[in-house]
């Protein structure tokens, strides 16, 4: 029962996210590029609305409840930036500025019928593999 609820909520959460990206036209790479060149700053409202809502949820909910509805602890973000993660962010931005795609919109846009995004999705998988291979070499 708990697994079914978890599965359903996770699928619904992803579907809301993907539908929202489609509604906001952020699945269209040209819209992202026109944001980055300041021709249409509308994506500020997408990021602002999504982040603003969750600023409330992430900050307030763990003070009101100890655990999530399914009884798991609330995940806290322990991430710390270092030189390598900032280089990663810089490379991510360059890729974003070249093609106007990021991981979520690549998935949602593919679902909405843009089959060309399979190329971007394949590229993202290759990039993630290269990163893992490099991490294995570093620790070997």
């Amino acid at each position: 029962m708990k697994n079914t609820l978890s599965f359903t909520a996770t699928l619904a959460a992803g579907a809301l996210f993907g539908f929202g990206l489609s509604w906001a036209t952020m699945i269209r790479p040209e819209v992202v590029l026109s944001f980055l060149t300041f021709d249409d700053l509308g994506l500020l409202f997408v990021l602002g609305a999504a982040t603003g809502l969750n600023l409330l949820v992430f900050q307030l909910l763990p003070r009101l409840r100890q655990r999530s509805l399914l009884g798991e602890a609330f995940e806290t973000r322990l991430f710390r930036a270092d030189r390598r993660s900032l280089i990663g962010g810089a490379l991510f931005g360059i890729g974003w500025g070249i093609c106007g795609v990021c991981p979520g919109p690549a998935l949602a846009g593919f679902g909405a019928g843009n089959a060309d995004l399979l190329i971007a999705l394949a590229g993202i998988f290759v990039g993630a593999l290269l990163h893992g291979v490099q991490e294995d070499r570093r620790s070997a």
Binding site: S6, A12, L47, A50, S68, L70, E75
Partner: peptide, 23 residues
């Protein structure tokens, strides 16, 4: 449409966090 889309995205992230605790 940007505002509505952003709110829907935010609801998705919120739903996952509220039900499963995951980011």
């Amino acid at each position: 449409h940007y505002l509505v889309g952003g709110l829907l995205i935010g609801l998705g992230v919120a739903l996952l966090f509220i039900v499963t605790g995951r980011q």
